[in-house]
């Protein structure tokens, strides 16, 4: 039964992922639709970051928020992505010790 559920989960996950790969060359988008598709990554990033980041630590939204602020600051300093990630993890780790 569990394998049946896994198979079902796989099918409904895979189909939406591959349909665009299968049909994109048959579609010719109007310029406005191109613009919308170009905007999708930035829209997705926004939607994935907030409010999700508040739930890094259950019941302690402030910890996730501070982790995010540290990531923003490190990005502005111009650090490489990997150090932004490590710095943010360290900030959350120390916050979780303190609160």
């Amino acid at each position: 039964m569990i394998y049946f559920i896994i198979a079902g989960m796989a099918v409904v996950t895979i189909i939406p992922r591959i349909i665009p790969a299968a049909i994109i060359h048959k579609l010719n988008f109007r310029p406005w639709l191109h613009r919308a598709l170009q905007a999708v990554p930035f829209a997705a990033l926004g939607a994935l970051i907030f409010p999700g980041i508040l739930s890094v630590y259950e019941d302690k939204p402030l910890i996730g928020l501070v982790g995010g602020i540290v990531a923003v600051v490190l990005t502005f300093i111009g650090l490489h992505l990997i150090f932004i990630v490590i710095g943010s993890i360290a900030a959350v780790y120390f916050m979780s010790l303190a609160f």
Binding site: G46, L48, G68, A71, V85, S88, I89
Partner: peptide
């Protein structure tokens, strides 16, 4: 928090 930091670092 790593994946959120990744998203922020990309955006």
């Amino acid at each position: 928090v790593a994946l959120y930091a990744l998203f922020i670092g990309l955006l």
